[in-house]
Design a protein around this nucleic acid. Structure first.
Lengths: 130, 130
DNA sequence: GCCTATACTCTCCAAAGGAAAGTAGGCACC
DNA sequence: GGTGCCTACTTTCCTTTGGAGAGTATAGGC
């Protein structure tokens, strides 16, 4: 079966190559393991503080959490609210843009839940075959 | 505004923590920059050979292309057809599972195209503010 | 004076990733 | 018969990224 259509959206797209490059860069930036996991926890739990997020995201190091949050803030995905108190209090929350990305990734979570067994079956088949 | 619902799908989910862990692992595996880019090119161009993919995916090294394709094959996302001829000929194509993942990521491509300008604006704002 | 709590920041080391050269093996050309 | 080509990888070497754990600054409580 050949491709019936190139993509399921935007069928008449000639797509400017510069735009395609930029989109590829953005995907490379945003399709990061930690970004995705942080996005999900913020989407699920709402506003969170640093240490809460560190507990929620399984296996992330403090360094990566800081870096990921900074990058997401730079991209306009999260809002960082600093309360100037002692001890320091910083709250992170999703912006509207971040929430829209979360919704866009919804389909992927769905897919992962739905096809978990298939993937595992494919893995064991691959491992035993070789 | 508090969270009106925890996720936009599966509102009554208590979600087995073991499943959640597995899903997280799978997301971490699949939400990789190179996996995503390879998936898109295979989705867009259909069956491709190794060197063709290397040209299509901007900036990938041969080692990463090999590793990514192997991992995707192991996960049942791509099919690897070897023609025993000289010079060697190997064709890669998406399986049904791979195509379903491509469709799931559709929303993310959509999002990236739609919000590119917002992200760039947020970046320049962040960079000049600091 | 000392301890605590918080959000980082720094240092050191291991793992991942990129560039470029090497490999296998039949085939065409000289 | 030797040389080089073609493709899909490997291998090697080196840079960058990422993780573990300790350190920093600050003010209030004991």
């Amino acid at each position: 079966m050949p491709q019936t259509e190139k993509r399921s959206y935007d069928p008449e797209a000639p797509v400017d190559p510069r735009v395609e490059t930029l989109v590829n860069e953005l995907i490379g930036r945003v399709a990061d393991k930690w970004t995705l996991l942080v996005l999900e926890e913020l989407d699920e739990h709402g506003t969170c503080r640093f240490t809460r997020l560190a507990q929620l995201v399984p296996g992330i190091s403090q360094k990566m959490l800081t870096q990921t949050l900074r990058a997401m803030e730079r991209d306009g995905l999260v809002h960082r609210k600093v309360h100037p108190v002692i001890p320091p209090k910083v709250e992170y929350s999703l912006t509207a843009l971040g929430q829209s990305l979360g919704e866009a990734f919804c389909g992927v979570w769905h897919w992962a839940e739905a096809h978990l067994c298939e993937v595992e079956a494919a893995r064991t088949a691959f491992d035993t075959r070789d």
